[in-house]
Structure formats: C-alpha cells, structure tokens
C-alpha cells in the first residue's frame, strides 16, 4: 500500500497541489458520513452536557451536570463499579481464552484447526440477545442448571443463579470471547514452533517457555484483544440489564435512565461523555503501552 501511494503521490503533487474534483466527489460520502453522523453529533453531545435547563427551551452554560456526577455518590459509584467490573471481565476473558487460542494455533493442525476456529466464531454471529436469553434459561430458578442440581441431589430446592455479579461475569466473558480469541490465534500463528523447541532443548520448563517465549511474542495480540474486550464490556447494556442484579447497575443503564426514563438529556449527555472519555482514555493508554496504533488493532 505504501509504495503504491508514494508513487501516485509524487505524480499528483507535481500536477495540481489542490484536491482534484474527482477526489473531492469520492470524498463527499465520507465527509457527509463523518460530519453528519459522527463529528457533529458528538460535538452536540458535548454542548448539551455543558448546559443547564432554565425553562422550556431556555438554557445556560454550566458545569452543573458534571458537578452533579461527582457529588452524587450513586452515579460516581456506578461509574467506578462499571470500570472495575470491566477490567475483571477483561482479565477473566484473557485467562480463559488464552489456552484455547494456544490450542487452536499451536496444538492443532490443518482441517481440525480450522473447524475448531470456526466453532469459536459461530456463536458470535448470533445476536447478543439470543445468547443472553440462553444464559437466562440455563441459570434461572426454574432453569436447566437448577433442575439438574436438584435431580443430582446436590441441592434441596430450586436455586436462583441469575441476578448476581458472578452471573454477570459469565455473561460478559461469554459475549467478549471472540474478540480475545481472534487476535490471540492470529498472533500465536506467527510464532515459530522451532522457538518453543529451542526453549525446550535448552532445558526450559513449560512455565518458563510460556513466560519467556510465548507470552512476549503474543503481547501485541493480548493488548489488542484486551483493549477491544474492555471497550465492548464497558459499553455493554444488554447483559448487565438482563443478567445483573437489582443493585448491580451498569453505567450504560444509568445513561439510558437519564435519557429515556427521566428525560434529563443534559445529565445523560454528561454521563455519555464521561463514558466516552473513559473508554477512549483506556484505549489510548493501552495502545501507547503496547506501542500500537488504532489502525494496527483493527487488522
């Protein structure tokens, strides 16, 4: 790509320094898309978050919505809780997903490998709603697991497994798994087997080979997997709403409540902006720490 661009770039810069009409026409859909649907709406979100409602369509500039967020413990706690739970979910996804990715990339070969990889991907073509519904059927009081436990004689009566933080974790990890496994498999694919063999020949134990060879090599994949999973978990709405308990409010639910239930768009926008800020900040820090760019991550 880069050589092609350099060649065409030198050609064009000698002819006209301005943007050509053809280029401009091609750029028009992009500009319309980005300005009308991404940039302006988010600027509007920022403006709305920085105003205070005085009366019907009467507003004044104010930091009131942000002050309210920092002074009201409920909002603040939900925010921190959502961030912490997302970090935990990301860590669990990594720990669960890594051995699976390693198995697919390094232990299996050929057709079997492709089949297992496909099996990893297929559940994620199914709507998140259906997947969450599945967990509800499994875990609810009259659900499959509760009935199984009673049948096996492990418990006396029906057990409610829904609406707890542990259930929420199971659901969040499930939903994010694909975004961890895909980058891990592709990065582990590029690890040469002979490096592992060399480590073994030099007397390395499984643990030391893992720590000295495999994990350092997989670092870019681990980083991009973690970034994506964290982002998606933070912005998740469905899983916390359906699987989480009454007191495990997710920050996106808070935003939804402000907007739709309480019709307080000003404070909802402020919350939205804070979530966007947290999400981008974590992505930015993650990319910097792993020395990657956003463009690398999407590949």
């Amino acid at each position: 790509m880069s050589t092609l661009q350099m060649v065409s770039g030198t050609e064009k810069s000698t002819t006209i320094p301005m943007i050509k009409l053809g280029t401009f026409l091609l750029m028009l859909p992009l500009l319309l898309w980005l300005f009308l649907l991404i940039i302006l709406p988010h600027l509007d979100l920022l403006t709305v978050s920085l105003r205070e409602k005085l009366g019907y369509r009467e507003y004044a500039f104010s930091f009131q919505n942000y002050i309210e967020f920092f002074t009201e413990p409920l909002y603040w706690n939900t925010f921190v809780r959502t961030a912490v739970m997302s970090i935990v979910a990301t860590a669990i996804t990594l720990v669960v997903g890594f051995p699976v990715s390693y198995y697919i990339a390094k232990v299996l070969k050929g057709k079997k490998r492709n089949l297992l990889f496909m099996m990893c991907l297929i559940p994620f073509w199914v709507s998140e709603l259906v997947r969450t519904f599945g967990w509800m059927i499994l875990l609810r009081e009259s659900g499959v697991i509760s009935s199984f436990l009673q049948w096996a004689g492990l418990v006396d009566g029906p057990v409610e497994l829904l609406y707890s933080d542990a259930t929420l974790m199971v659901g969040l990890v499930y939903t994010s798994m694909l975004f961890m496994v895909v980058p891990l498999v592709s990065v582990l694919d590029t690890l040469d087997d002979s490096l592992i063999e060399a480590g073994y020949d030099l007397g390395g134990s499984t643990y030391s080979i893992l720590r000295e060879i495999v994990i350092p090599h997989a670092m870019p994949g681990i980083a991009s997997g973690c970034i994506v999973v964290f982002m998606l978990t933070l912005g998740n709405y469905l899983t916390p709403t359906l699987l989480g308990g009454k007191d495990s409010l997710w920050f996106t639910e808070q935003i939804y409540n402000q907007f739709i239930t309480r019709f307080n768009w000003e404070s909802g926008s402020a919350f939205g902006f804070l979530l966007l800020f947290l999400s981008s900040a974590i992505v930015f820090v993650g990319l910097k720490l792993s020395r990657q760019t956003l463009a690398d991550t999407v590949k």
């Binding site: 750029m27 992009l30 980005l34 649907l37 991404i38 940039i39 302006l40 709406p41 988010h42 509007d44 979100l45 709305v48 982002m231 933070l234 912005g235 709405y237 996106t252 935003i255 939804y256 907007f259 768009w265 909802g268 926008s269 939205g272 979530l275 966007l276 999400s279 981008s280 992505v283 956003l294 463009a295 999407v298």
Partner: peptide, 27 residues
C-alpha cells in the same frame, strides 16, 4: 486524520453513538 476519524466508530460505545445521534437529529 480522515482515516483515523473513519475508524472512530469502532471505539465509540453503541449507546453513546445512539444518544449523540438522537440529540443531534433532535436539535
């Protein structure tokens, strides 16, 4: 810069994208 902007929607949580478009169209 345009390329980075074109990738932006990937890092915007869906709920936020929804509310920002809701606010903008409403404005």
């Amino acid at each position: 810069i345009l390329y980075i902007f074109a990738l932006m929607p990937l890092v915007i949580p869906g709920v936020i994208l929804g509310i920002s478009i809701l606010i903008f169209t409403n404005s």
